[in-house]
């Protein structure tokens, strides 16, 4: 407890970081329900590698990573979604190609143009796995993330019913005059935004955990869309808070701590789900 209070008092950014981590997890989880149901979980993974590639380029050119990574990832998200709806190219193969390609490209750039301030492995490590400790998060990132998170939350609540309709039955939505294409693109764009935000915090490899685990946990127990959304939002916030506390107390890396917390919660929900269906 004392360590916690000490951290909160000594490092003002810790307070913001906790807030932002919670917001990012929340956004990822809300979006995750839709992505998992649309069989887009792998897109999150592929995009996080694109973001990694873009970040490496930005680091090499000494730009602020987010300004490069954001547009790049969003554009790739929209493109990947297009490929997905075009039946001739295999969706998962395309994702694997883009994902591996960006990873290789990013690491190559990091090696060819090493930054002066830190070592290659440290750079790669922090982009892939996130900041090693919670104090490493920069204040400018925190503010940007908070703004983006609120935008994503607003968009999600505003288009909630449309997102449901497009996720549940795209053909029906299109046939009856809902512009499914627009909402799919919207989902792709906010996916891109969430991934870039999350990458600063938890690193590109662990983003999939934030996106998929809350949704999968909630789906073990709940059977309606609304309940699943609400439950995964709670799981995300809970895991983010518990995860940060653990990572402060045990000085473990932020990303993997939160990811592991999510996995533990999934285990619990799996059991509850099994008990529930066993009782019937």
């Amino acid at each position: 407890m004392e360590t916690l209070i000490f951290y909160f008092k000594t490092y003002p950014t810790v307070r913001y970081s906790v807030l932002v981590l919670t917001l990012v997890s929340l956004c990822a989880a809300l979006l995750g329900v839709s992505l998992v149901l649309k069989r887009f979980s792998m897109i999150g993974d592929g995009l996080s590698h694109v973001a990694f590639g873009a970040t490496s380029v930005a680091t090499a050119a000494s730009f602020t990573p987010v300004y490069i990574a954001l547009p790049f990832t969003v554009v790739s998200a929209v493109l990947l979604l297009r490929i997905r709806s075009n039946t001739k190219i295999q969706g998962d193969a395309a994702i694997a190609m883009i994902s591996a390609g960006s990873l290789a490209f990013g690491y190559m750039i990091l090696n060819l143009f090493p930054s002066k301030s830190s070592s290659i492995s440290a750079d790669a490590c922090s982009t892939l796995f996130g900041s090693a400790s919670i104090i490493g998060i920069k204040r400018s990132d925190v503010i940007l993330c908070a703004v983006l998170a609120f935008v994503v939350l607003f968009v999600f609540i505003f288009f909630y019913h449309k997102i449901f309709a497009v996720t549940f039955d795209e053909n029906f939505a299109t046939a009856t005059g809902t512009k499914a294409e627009i909402y799919n693109t919207l989902i792709a764009v906010i996916t891109g935004v969430v991934i870039v935000m999350a990458m600063n915090m938890v690193g590109s490899l662990l983003i999939s955990a934030l996106i998929t685990f809350p949704a999968l946990s909630a789906m073990r127990v709940f059977k309606t869309f609304k309940k699943v959304i609400i439950c995964s939002a709670f799981i995300a916030v809970f895991c983010a808070l518990i995860g940060t506390v653990i990572c402060i107390l045990a000085s473990t890396p932020v990303g993997s701590t939160i990811a592991l917390t999510n996995i533990a919660v999934f285990g619990i929900f799996y059991l509850i789900g099994a008990l529930k269906s066993g009782k019937k």
Binding site: L37, F168, D169
Partner: peptide
């Protein structure tokens, strides 16, 4: 309909999604 095996949605949610247009 190509609804997936594990889609969480109540009957009411499905019906009212018809009103969306």
């Amino acid at each position: 309909t190509l609804t997936q095996r594990d889609f969480p949605a109540s009957a009411y949610e499905v019906v009212i999604s018809g009103c969306l247009n």
